[in-house]
Nucleic acid binder design. Structure first.
Lengths: 197, 197
DNA sequence: GTCTATATACCGATAGAC
DNA sequence: GTCTATCGGTATATAGAC
């Protein structure tokens, strides 16, 4: 059973075009906000006419869906990279490493953070497949925190609210700066005290 | 120099209509999100045709502007009410009262909170007059925190990020519930420890 | 001050030629 | 797979009659 040797090249090219479209969509989102993306803006940047995008994505929301998955997949990889060598033995340092990894990733791209955490439009709901890496991040965080003794639901809530609050404050009040980033270690220290480390 | 006795009644009626329009706009915002308000939806609820709204507001953004002012004015009054009788002598209790007043106000209306803190649309920027109550809230908070010994810029940043983070987490992950509200006192206790109370 | 009618400008999405 | 042409819808805003 021979396979067409062209098949791979065609599939590769198709996948490359999809990536191009998504890259352009991210650029538009960074310039005008995630909710302000239009197919015209994306198509202009790719060098296509808007209807041609439908050869690669079934709808505008399908583009959002792929972006949502990319955003959380990147977050998952950032956390894995930070915890990969094994979390430091000191739970206080371990929590700092985790919090810093998430904070840095979230703060690096405002549009991406909006897509990950805020509701963009009323009709867009991520598909189960796109939602999977988001769940994976949450599960990895739970596992890592559990490994340093943080298992209470209330503690997880407090941790995520504090780190998330610093992210939002940084992006809203000092984008590109480090005014709230400078409070992160102190905040994690507070949490460590609170959790009894 | 006689004044027309009808003048007052006319002005009153006009003001009442303005209030009706804003009330309807808030209702639409609560149902569909602050960014999804349309003049048609507002007009339907008031019992008008969309163009008639222009007899009372110069533009859609002028409606947002008035809503923005209302939202922060309400917050200012909530803080004044909480601190009016005089803040408790114990700085820890005082900070709890302040934080709770802001948290409760912010969490009570998701659409209002979005208008107050997030950017709604690229073109809407609050006018200086609408922005005034927002500044007043910030100044009052600074004054109240200073009265219990919190003056460092870093401490104010940490306080606002933590309280804001709990607000956002509550609205995003458990709207209408109290999952993060239950962590507020604990969070403020942490901050009090950190500030050396 | 409210109405009808309309201007103007988008948007996402589809049909069909090439 | 990309194009042109277009559909169908919605948005803010204005003009002018009443």
């Amino acid at each position: 059973m021979l396979v067409d040797p062209m098949r791979d090249r065609v599939a590769e090219r198709r996948e490359a075009t999809r990536r191009e479209i998504l890259t352009s969509a991210w650029e538009v989102a960074q310039e005008k906000g995630i909710a302000a993306i239009t197919l015209k803006d994306v198509a202009d940047r790719v060098g296509m006419r808007p209807p041609s995008l439908y050869s690669h994505f079934a709808s505008k929301n399908a583009i959002y869906d792929a972006m949502f998955a990319q955003a959380w997949q990147g977050c998952l990889e950032a956390l894995h990279a930070a915890a990969g060598p094994g979390l430091p033995g000191d739970p206080r340092v371990a929590m700092t490493v985790m919090g810093r990894a998430y904070f840095d990733y979230a703060v690096a791209d405002q549009a991406r953070n909006q897509l990950m955490n805020a509701r963009i439009s009323a009709d867009f709901q991520p598909s189960p497949e796109a939602y999977a890496p988001s769940l994976a991040v949450w599960e990895l965080s739970r596992t890592l925190l559990a490994s340093i003794g943080v298992t209470a639901e209330a503690d997880l809530d407090l941790y995520s609210a504090v780190v998330g609050g610093l992210v939002d404050a940084q992006l809203a009040n000092d984008p590109g700066g480090d005014r709230y980033a400078r409070q992160l270690d102190r905040a994690i220290g507070m949490l460590a005290d609170q959790f009894g480390f």
